[in-house]
C-alpha cells in the first residue's frame, strides 16, 4: 500500500516536473523567437537608414543632369522624408513606404540611362554602386526578417506556444511583401544580351 502511494506520488511529481520543464522551454523559445524578430528588424532598419542617407547625395548628383526629371526627384525626396518619419512607428507603414521608395529609386536608375553625361560621372557611378550594395544587403535583411517572423508566427500559433503567447502579450507580426508587378522573375538571358 505504502509502495503504491509513493509510486502515485512519484508519478504526479514526474508529470508536474515535465509540465514545468515544458513551460520553461516554451517560454524561452517564444522569447528567443521574439528577440530574433527584433534583431532582424534592427538589421533592416540599419540598411534602410543607410539608404536614406544616400538619397540626398544621389539627388544632388543627378539633378544637374536630369533637369527634366524634376518631378521624379521631388517625389523621391518627399518619400524619403515620409519614410524617415515612419521609422520606429511600426513595420506596416514603414514597409509600404520603403516599397514605394524602392520603386522610385529603380525609376531614377532607369531614367538615368538616357543621360550619357550622367552615366559617365564618377560621383554618380560611385553612388550607384553604393546604393546597389545597400539594396543587396537590404534584400538579404528583408529575407532574414521574413524568416524570423515566420518562425515567430509559427511558434505562437502552434501548440504549446499557442497557450502561452496570449499570456505573454505576444501577437502575430507582418512580413515584408512585394507588389505583384515586382514578383515577375527577370529573364537573365535578355538582361545580359
Amino acid at each position: 500500500m505504502e509502495k503504491g502511494k509513493s509510486m502515485d506520488l512519484a508519478f504526479v511529481l514526474g508529470v508536474a516536473a515535465l509540465l514545468v520543464l515544458g513551460g520553461f522551454l516554451t517560454y524561452n523559445t517564444l522569447i528567443a523567437r521574439k528577440n530574433q524578430v527584433d534583431n532582424a528588424y534592427g538589421a533592416v532598419e540599419a540598411y534602410l537608414k543607410k539608404r536614406h542617407d544616400l538619397i540626398p547625395n544621389l539627388v544632388e548628383a543627378v539633378k544637374r543632369y536630369m533637369a527634366h526629371e524634376r518631378e521624379l526627384l521631388e517625389r523621391l525626396v518627399e518619400l524619403r522624408e515620409r519614410a524617415k518619419e515612419a521609422e520606429g512607428k511600426g513595420p506596416e507603414e514603414a514597409f509600404r513606404l520603403e516599397g514605394e521608395l524602392s520603386r522610385l529609386l529603380a525609376q531614377v536608375r532607369l531614367r538615368a540611362e538616357a543621360y550619357p553625361d550622367l552615366k559617365a560621372s564618377q560621383n554618380f557611378l560611385q553612388l550607384q554602386a553604393a546604393l546597389t550594395e545597400v539594396e543587396d544587403s537590404l534584400a538579404a535583411a528583408r529575407r532574414f526578417y521574413n524568416q524570423a517572423v515566420t518562425d515567430y508566427n509559427n511558434a505562437i500559433e502552434q501548440i504549446p506556444g499557442r497557450f502561452l503567447a496570449p499570456l505573454m502579450g505576444l501577437g502575430r507580426k507582418p512580413v515584408f511583401t512585394i507588389p505583384e508587378e515586382e514578383r515577375e522573375t527577370p529573364d537573365l538571358g535578355k538582361l545580359f544580351a
Binding site: S102, A106, R109, Q128, A129, L131, T132, E135, D136, L138, A139, A140, R142, R143, N146, V175, F176, T177, I178, E182, R183, P186, L188, L191, F192
Partner: peptide
Amino acid sequence: ARKRGLFGGEGPT
C-alpha cells in the same frame, strides 16, 4: 547580376 543592380530588391520568395 546583383552588383549591376539588375535584380533590384529580392523581396520574399
